[in-house]
Design a protein around this nucleic acid. Sequence first.
DNA 1: CGCAATCGTTTACAAGCGTAGTCTACTGTC
DNA 2: GACAGTAGACTACGCTTGTAAACGATTGCG
Lengths: 125, 125
Amino acid sequence: MSAPESISEAESAVLAVLWEKGAATADDVVAALAKPRDWRESTVKTLLGRLLKKGAVRAEKDGRRFIYSPTLAREEWLSRESESLLNRLYGGRLAPLVAHFSRHRKLSKRDVRELKRLIEELDDE
Amino acid sequence: MSAPESISEAESAVLAVLWEKGAATADDVVAALAKPRDWRESTVKTLLGRLLKKGAVRAEKDGRRFIYSPTLAREEWLSRESESLLNRLYGGRLAPLVAHFSRHRKLSKRDVRELKRLIEELDDE
DNA sequence: CGCAATCGTTTACAAGCGTAGTCTACTGTC
DNA sequence: GACAGTAGACTACGCTTGTAAACGATTGCG
């Protein structure tokens, strides 16, 4: 199940690119991250290296370069991060989080609409 | 408004005690944390000091000791942490998080029941 | 009144992180 | 075949975090 090595903020930005593209060279990643984060090439290389070491990314040799692709699935990562927060702050359950947001009027109409639909679907199962 | 100094995991455990007790001496906190975390006294002292410096905690002199109390409200902290996660992972909205959990069958019956009630209440507003 | 206990403060130190420069080896080009 | 460019690896460095020992000031007790 791949050791649960924790992914840092910066690393997750790199992973995000790989999740979107499926696979990419270091240069592709550098290019893709040019806009959002303003990182030097070496920064991205370092992050790729760390992700490699953590086993969250795989590198396949393609001539003189490597093609990087994610090993850790985005969904898996989402689960880990989300559950970690729920455990730390809300006793591991989702409802209290939602309650917190509703209590503080932090829900957009869109959120409410979507939540409503989601809950209805749940009833059907 | 208090500067949004970020609170670390360990620090939040100390804050948790203060939130529960309202106010406490360093020793009280050490005692309260004896069970969950197995920290030396100095560890707790360090954390209290850091929280002080971060402005998340206030210390009022009471004879030779200090009485510590939280400056940062728990609700405020919950909001910060939760919103930060939502922003980083779900485009800042709550519905996608719930969708993720439902997709992965991570919702307990209790969660579903409570969510249902919450959503109904929302409709009333 | 002196001393041991007790507070809070200072210092410590390894690991992780953000950010990046430098080094080395390979390769495509003239 | 020599050389410039380039890709990945190695090194760096200051900051935060987790964890704690050491230090110095104060004080209640005998």
